[in-house]
Amino acid sequence: MPSETPQAEVGPTGCPHRSGPHSAKGSLEKGSPEDKEAKEPLWIRPDAPSRCTWQLGRPASESPHHHTAPAKSPKILPDILKKIGDTPMVRINKIGKKFGLKCELLAKCEFFNAGGSVKDRISLRMIEDAERDGTLKPGDTIIEPTSGNTGIGLALAAAVRGYRCIIVMPEKMSSEKVDVLRALGAEIVRTPTNARFDSPESHVGVAWRLKNEIPNSHILDQYRNASNPLAHYDTTADEILQQCDGKLDMLVASVGTGGTITGIARKLKEKCPGCRIIGVDPEGSILAEPEELNQTEQTTYEVEGIGYDFIPTVLDRTVVDKWFKSNDEEAFTFARMLIAQEGLLCGGSAGSTVAVAVKAAQELQEGQRCVVILPDSVRNYMTKFLSDRWMLQKGFLKEEDLTEKKPWWWHLRVQELGLSAPLTVLPTITCGHTIEILREKGFDQAPVVDEAGVILGMVTLGNMLSSLLAGKVQPSDQVGKVIYKQFKQIRLTDTLGRLSHILEMDHFALVV
């Protein structure tokens, strides 16, 4: 994948999101292997301009796509893939009243899908469409860049269908997702969380590099694949309309690839034109409109599966009536509230959605109805927002919020430890010299600072030695090549209790 991002070429006709291997024109390309080798690009942008032909009021008969309808489940399912879809609609009884809503608040519980998330729908649909058009064949390999849930859905379907599955996901995604993927037989590649989507090191860039190296491999490409919004247009939206008897006044959905909100909203605009569509985008993402909503100094966020630093091709923002931004604290607070007060075992993005819903639905009156999409299960986040310690460490809970008995030293300040200034190293000294210094002084790690004293990161003896043994660096290389740029900081005025929580999850903390 090139470091400079080429513009994806656009073909003359058809839909841009065809499933299957992508040609340089962004659509299915038939021909000899030699032709494909000559024409197939190194990668295709996940934010390529959409060429979708959908228009409100256009006859369904003019759609270029294969459409399906929700099917009634048999008493005995032939395999677990038949437990994807037909998820329950559940009334939220307490939270709406707590925040003064007059309307009825309903939750579409997508964590009841077989793999635990709304992404099971698009995973199965992308595979079925690729099999139907002859792209996927027995023994082929599926590769997908994902925040985890699409990966789980694909790995689940691949396990049943017999495909090899490789999932490329950023490091910030939970260990629970990784464990589930491994249990399903998927191979996992992790990428830096802070890598831009168009960087060769991003999950998108690495996935395309693997595709170019592995024979008979395919990126189904949830960011561009029409099967993504079509899955929701054909099934999720129809289920909502049936469950609500066609009567709903507002739908609120958090947005990642945009397939969920695009597919549902398009069908609702056709069948229930008075329904307002509300999009939820986390602070630090750029999906919301108008652009002024996205202006923030924050560039990272903890909530998973929603928000991006690019506009995915499948996201149709014209069908969203209003956007709201959400933050991590309210997302996790509301997710825990949904679990504790409503018994809905949902993930953090569901918290984002409901946090926005109780604001947006203030305009609705008694007798009206708001539906929220709860995308995934708490299963993926047992060591994250479900953990009091994690919430404390991230600053989303305060010590006084917890009532468990603490040891005698818990409320003492870090400054009472009488710490001395640490050994520091410059980023320009060599790895070999740094190892000598650390061994001589008896230290395992040291902060790396520039000549102005600005902290650049941390270097550890173990990481340097393993990097040297693996051949990633040489003793003569500058130590700046092996620094940890993500590390926890703590102030002298913070409590030892807070430091204790940090050290339970990290090997060190830097006192500043």
Rank of each mutant, 00 (worst) to 15 (best):
M169A: 06
I44S: 13
K36V: 03
Y223G: 01
D221R: 00
E239K: 03
L220D: 00
Q242P: 03
Q242N: 14
E187M: 04
A265D: 02
P200I: 08
P6S: 12
K82Y: 11
Y163R: 03
E128P: 08
A155H: 01
L105D: 00
T262G: 06
K108H: 02
L210V: 07
H17A: 04
T53D: 09
I219V: 07
I188H: 00
A114S: 14
W54V: 06
P273L: 11
P170S: 07
D35F: 03
A195V: 15
I188N: 00
K36Q: 13
H66I: 11
R196I: 09
S117F: 03
K36H: 12
S227L: 03
I219H: 04
P138N: 10
P2V: 09
C52Y: 00
R18A: 14
P49T: 10
R276T: 10
T150P: 03
D234K: 05
Q222F: 02
S202D: 06
P200N: 08
T13N: 11
Q7G: 08
P6T: 11
L156H: 01
A226V: 09
W43S: 06
V206I: 13
V118N: 07
P215E: 08
I84A: 09
R209F: 06
T193I: 09
H218F: 12
T135Y: 15
G31Y: 05
T53R: 09
G134Q: 08
E201P: 09
V180R: 02
T257S: 06
V252N: 09
T193F: 07
G26C: 09
S117A: 06
E187T: 12
E171D: 11
K98I: 14
H218P: 04
D47L: 02
S3D: 04
T260R: 03
D120F: 07
L106P: 09
P16K: 12
E128D: 08
H17M: 05
C103M: 01
S217A: 06
A231G: 07
W54I: 06
K119H: 00
A159M: 02
E62Q: 14
V160E: 09
L105Y: 03
P33A: 06
P64W: 03
R132N: 13
P6N: 10
F112E: 03
D35R: 07
K30C: 03
V90C: 02
G20H: 12
L251G: 03
E201R: 15
I80W: 01
T68W: 09
V160F: 02
K75Y: 07
D140R: 07
A155K: 01
G57I: 09
S254K: 09
E171W: 01
P70Y: 04
S227Y: 12
A114F: 03
K83L: 08
R132S: 13
N194I: 10
K172T: 03
A231Y: 05
S175K: 08
G162A: 01
G14H: 12
I142L: 10
T260W: 01
I95L: 06
R45M: 09
R125K: 11
G205I: 07
T193D: 10
L106I: 13
P74H: 07
G263K: 02
G148E: 06
D234H: 05
G246V: 01
P46C: 04
P145T: 05
G115K: 08
P12R: 15
P41C: 12
G134F: 06
C15K: 12
F99E: 10
E201N: 09
I261Y: 03
C103L: 05
H66L: 13
P64K: 08
T5A: 04
I76G: 08
F112Q: 06
E144K: 04
C103V: 04
L105G: 05
A237K: 02
R18I: 11
I80D: 01
A48C: 11
S3N: 10
K137T: 09
V204G: 07
C165H: 01
E213M: 15
K269V: 01
D249Y: 04
D79L: 06
I76F: 06
N93I: 01
D234M: 10
K94G: 13
S227F: 10
F111G: 04
S61I: 03
G162W: 03
N228I: 00
K83E: 10
A183M: 04
T235I: 12
P88Q: 08
G116V: 13
T5K: 10
C165N: 01
